[in-house]
Simulated scan of single mutants.
Amino acid sequence: MAKNTFRTSPPEEKTNKKRTVQSSLNDDIDVSTNNRHPIVQLVISYCIKFLIYFFSISLVWVLVLKFVPIWVTPTMIDRKVTAIFEGRDSEIHSDWEPYENISKEAALAVVASEDQLFPQHLGFDFNAMWGAFRHNLKGKKIKGASTISQQVAKNVFLWQGRSYVRKVLEVYFTFLIEVIWGKERILEVYLNVAETGKMTFGVEAAALRYYGHSAKLINRAEAARIAAVLPSPNRFSIANPSKYVQKRTNFIMRQMRGLGGKAYIADL
């Protein structure tokens, strides 16, 4: 009776087949990887170069502006271009003055009005930010919590408007100016670039236009009225203060006294 015979592969042949299958799979993976790798590598390379250039340029930019007057800001350019397109007077009123030539009443007024923890914080008032976040969650009118440092970072280096990209950049530039500029320089820049009226920037320009004298001669009441219009300088007027502006001016003057007067900002 014939026996059924089954041919079995020797161990060496099975091993060779496994190697062949594995080699084929590896070849497929290599082809797929090679097709993607150059593109991914190129994107990563460009991203790294962009970040290096961005950090280098921004660092140099901040270092230079620590020492030179800031005559023009993106906000000034935006206001001028808008006025030209709308057919209005597009003249910008701005006059840079060193910190020592500006009344410390003006410096104290903006701190009392905008950012009372300015001498202490490192650029951010987290308690105020959390309070504004909770307020905004209720769906009411959007409330900001920007410190003077954040406002300077936005006005000097960035653009107006709300977006996550701008906010991230604002945090970055705020950190840089806090580390590189220091408090006195930040306050000096704020007093020179903050919008204080229609087409008007800085307390020197505001003092000359609305009070008829330089910022060095601003008294407490005048300083408080300038600070009172800062939340909305195109809506409120220093020259013709509304009842709201007058009420806010008185409130700011009480805050200035409560902080201890000019001594509060003496050691910035």
Rank of each mutant, 00 (worst) to 15 (best):
M1C: 08
N4D: 00
T5W: 10
T5G: 01
F6Q: 13
T8W: 07
S9W: 03
E13L: 09
T15P: 01
T15G: 14
N16R: 13
K18N: 13
K18F: 11
T20Y: 11
V21D: 04
Q22I: 14
N26Y: 15
I29T: 09
V31P: 00
S32W: 12
N35K: 15
N35A: 15
V40F: 13
L42R: 11
L42D: 09
V43W: 15
S45W: 08
C47E: 09
I48E: 08
I48A: 15
K49V: 12
Y53P: 00
Y53C: 07
F55Y: 11
F55M: 11
S56H: 07
S58G: 01
I70L: 02
T73L: 07
M76N: 02
D78V: 00
R79A: 06
K80D: 01
K80C: 03
A83V: 07
I84F: 00
F85C: 03
S94D: 02
W96T: 11
P98Y: 03
E100R: 09
N101D: 14
I102C: 05
S103C: 05
K104G: 02
A106H: 00
A106F: 03
A106S: 09
A109V: 00
V110A: 08
V111Q: 09
V111C: 05
Q116C: 06
F118G: 00
F118R: 00
H121P: 03
F124W: 14
F124S: 07
N127Q: 13
A128I: 05
W130R: 11
G131Y: 14
G131L: 15
A132I: 12
R134E: 11
H135R: 13
K138N: 10
K141Y: 08
K141Q: 15
A145H: 08
S146Q: 09
S146M: 03
V152T: 04
A153D: 14
A153P: 03
N155F: 04
L158A: 01
L158M: 05
G161T: 01
R162A: 09
R166A: 01
E170H: 06
Y172K: 00
T174P: 05
E178W: 09
V179M: 12
V179Y: 12
V179K: 10
G182E: 05
E184Q: 15
L191Q: 06
V193G: 02
V193I: 15
A194T: 14
A194L: 06
T196K: 08
G197D: 14
T200V: 11
F201M: 08
V203G: 11
E204Q: 14
A207D: 13
N219D: 15
A221L: 09
A224F: 05
I226K: 03
A228K: 08
V229W: 01
L230H: 04
P233I: 01
F236N: 04
S237N: 10
P241D: 11
M256P: 06
G258Y: 07
G258F: 06
L259Q: 06
G261E: 14
K262W: 04
I265E: 10
A266D: 10
L268Y: 06
